[in-house]
Each structure stands twice: as structure tokens, then as C-alpha cells.
């Protein structure tokens, strides 16, 4: 159990994040879920890169075991991407709040769906 702790933590974050995205109608909460989901990926990459007893990969006397630097570099990029996504998402939520007065997805869909239900050919352009 302990041996697999890192994997379990990763999977827990992944599932929890995805669940929040699915289950919550609040757009900010959705973004939080999304961030959690992305964070799980960081763990997925970083944890196996850690070599016990290894040091930073700088060649020097007395050090023979190095950690793999590549995952760190990759995840640095991924974090940047994640921040950009989160920032853009939050910006959109602000704009949606200005336009609709709410950030609950259900309420927005209700606002855009016509109330009348009178057969085909109508309501096709509602979001």
C-alpha cells in the first residue's frame, strides 16, 4: 500500500478532479476540478522520475546516481500550460457573469432555451 502510495494519490486526484468537472454546475468549481485533474498529471510524470538517493543531474565528484531531469522539464511546461488554461477559463467566467449574471451552467442553459415547445424546426439556435 505504501509502496503504491504515489500511484494511489495520482489516481485519486485524477478521479476527484474529473468528478468535480462532471458533477458541479458552478463554472468556477468546474475550473477547480479541472486544475486538480491536471495536477494529477504532474504527479504521474514526476514521481517515477525521483530516484531514491539520486541528486540533481549535475555531474560532480562523488555523485553517481542522478534523478531523471526530463520529467521535470516537461512538467514545467505543463504547469505553464495549466496556468494559462486556468487564467483564460477564469477570464471567460468573468465575462459570462457580466453577460448572463450567473455562473451556474444550468441557469445559463435555461436562459438560452426557449420555453415554448411546439414541434420541430424551432429552438435550433439556442445554446
Amino acid at each position: 500500500m505504501i509502496a503504491h502510495f504515489s500511484q494511489i494519490a495520482t489516481i485519486f486526484l485524477m478521479v476527484a478532479g474529473l468528478y468535480v468537472v462532471m458533477a458541479r454546475g458552478n463554472m468556477v468549481k468546474k475550473l477547480i476540478g479541472l486544475s486538480l485533474f491536471q495536477s494529477s498529471v504532474y504527479l504521474l510524470y514526476l514521481l517515477p522520475g525521483k530516484v531514491i538517493g539520486g541528486t540533481a543531474p549535475i555531474i560532480g565528484a562523488g555523485f553517481t546516481v542522478y534523478a531523471n531531469p526530463l520529467p521535470h522539464v516537461l512538467i514545467l511546461t505543463a504547469i505553464v500550460v495549466g496556468i494559462a488554461t486556468l487564467a483564460l477559463g477564469l477570464t471567460l467566467v468573468v465575462r459570462i457573469k457580466e453577460a448572463y449574471g450567473t455562473i451556474e451552467e444550468d441557469e445559463i442553459i435555461a436562459k438560452e432555451t426557449p420555453k415554448t415547445r411546439n414541434g420541430p424546426g424551432r429552438g435550433g439556435d439556442a445554446a
Binding site: 468537472v21 485533474f37 488554461t85 483564460l88 477559463g89 448572463y100 445554446a127
Partner: peptide
Amino acid sequence: DRRALVAAYQYLIVGTI
């Protein structure tokens, strides 16, 4: 259209997933 914002948000979530 203001619906563009919702569409963009939705695409952001889905695309990121």
C-alpha cells in the same frame, strides 16, 4: 453573441480534459 462565451468555456473544459 454572448453564447460564444459559453461555447468557448465549454470547449475549454472539454479541450483541456
